[in-house]
Amino acid sequence: MSRRVHPALWIWLAAGFAFLYVPIVSLIIFSFNESKLVTVWSGFSTRWYGALLQNDQILSAAGLSVRIGLISASLAVVLGTLVAVVLARFGMFRGRALLSGLATAPLVMPEVITGLSLLLLFVALEQAIGWPSGRSALTIIIAHTTFAMAYVAVVVQSRLTGMDPAIEEAAMDLGARPSKVFFVITLPLISPALVSGFLLAFTLSLDDLVLASFVSGPGATTLPMVIYSKVRLGLSPEINALATLMVAVVGAGVVIAGVILNRAEKARQRDEQMALAGDEAPPLR
């Protein structure tokens, strides 16, 4: 089924790939540059990686970002799943439309507005009840949780509505109480959605600059904030090295996910062959 491809198409394809990958590739190449000038190549070196490991500001910001990401993603998964279950399984109750709208508002709201409103909320809360005292990692976690929860709710809800409701009913029919049904049947079945919801929430938190800028206080500086402030003072090869490391981590993640999915697909095909052979088995009786 090979078709002759017009040479012009190859050129377009190459242009497209170049557009997508040349910036990243040049970033990686220049992270190994000897020179301090980001645009002049003077020889291969890994000195910027060494410098990165010495840079406490970047390391602690990276650590903070990862911690905020893990905590807010965990919270977002729990809260988002609760919202999704209520929306997908509790039928038509009073206030459903309101909950649905509230839960998904952060998806369409400009981040600047979300950030601003959260900041106002925190300030007002501090004046009223004294909590949260000042802006800190805590306020970033709260902001990221509200934001990412909406994404988790959408992902989990679509998984729940795609599931045959009879499966949960069957469990209940066989004597399992609703709470048991949730933990033994529903949760395992939506676990893929929980994992992807968690990863989505974690990524959203990790690369968020806007919300964090609004609600962070002194001493709570996330990695994107550090990168942004450094770059504003001028490009540095150290940041190139940092970016290269991030690309490497993300790239590895994508490759591993691809391999796992590929294996699962092969297993599924094998299982289908097995199932097809089944009806030729000797009949009952």
């Binding site: 009879a166 499966i167 009913e169 069957a170 029919d173 049947i185 395992p188 079945l189």
Partner: peptide, 12 residues
């Protein structure tokens, strides 16, 4: 007990 039209077996 009920046997469902879709069988509703627990896939996991």
């Amino acid at each position: 007990n009920m046997m469902f039209q879709s069988y509703a077996l627990f896939p996991h």
